[in-house]
Design a protein around this nucleic acid. Sequence first.
DNA 1: TGCTTTCCGACCGTCAGTATCGGATATTTA
DNA 2: TAAATATCCGATACTGACGGTCGGAAAGCA
Lengths: 146, 146
Amino acid sequence: MRVTTWAEYGLIVSLHLAKQGREAPTPARDMAKKEGLPADYVEQILLKLRRAGLVSSVRGAKGGYYLAREPETISVKDVIEAAENRTFEVNCDVHKVSAVRCHDGNPCSIRPVWRELQRRVDDMLASISLGDLMLQEAEVQELIAV
Amino acid sequence: MRVTTWAEYGLIVSLHLAKQGREAPTPARDMAKKEGLPADYVEQILLKLRRAGLVSSVRGAKGGYYLAREPETISVKDVIEAAENRTFEVNCDVHKVSAVRCHDGNPCSIRPVWRELQRRVDDMLASISLGDLMLQEAEVQELIAV
DNA sequence: TGCTTTCCGACCGTCAGTATCGGATATTTA
DNA sequence: TAAATATCCGATACTGACGGTCGGAAAGCA
């Protein structure tokens, strides 16, 4: 169980854009270079973020990307879902062990575990915004430790 | 982000053994057949569970596997860690984006998110025992919904 | 007319996940 | 003691997701 680089990079570039402000667009290539990430790959991720409506883009020279909304209104969950299509994926839904076993009608005492786990993961990730992540590491830590 | 079949199958067979009781050992092949899982694969997983000390085995005819401890003393986290080697894996530790970025000295406001997420996942999975999972689905659901 | 940059599909290598197999060893039963 | 049943365990094989690259089309600036 782990997050992929799609989510990790997606978060890095989103945060980068948040810090850049929303006045002028930032080229993908510049961002990739500054963050030390593969440029072509970053572009793919930005494409996903744009399609999800999290970032906007300006084509042509002097173009680039900028955050579509205020950092405070974009959650970590938003970014991960945009980049990775899901946060926590429950096997009962997608990678079923078997059609019979995982059918809704068939009782399964394990199912509630995954469902509840998903709920808690989503709750936590939805509670953190890009605005929060613009703080220092120690401050963020304090913020999310309930 | 999802659990692998190692964890899922591991939980299924552990729960199966819990329901069988600890008097007589259950052969891996029987278990696999009843649960509709690939027999050879189930054997691999049982091997892992045994090495982690969660199940014990008896070799030879009339042999098989049985739970090493009472179901109430074995948590879902125990099973997943035995089968999958980890529950939630933080990229900061294993699949670092880059050595510099993820170095402890380098501040990173994203890191606390993964760390806290790991903590919450582990907390939840540690709070559920195989004994709990021997209840009906609805009861389990009620039990873990805080 | 260049130059920059997004846009987008297609491609590709690698590795973790998901098994399968073959044989060695241990134990019971006939 | 032979046969049958099981665990033990390393080696191998298949597959798709992951992580990344490429080439070119279209759009806007100088």
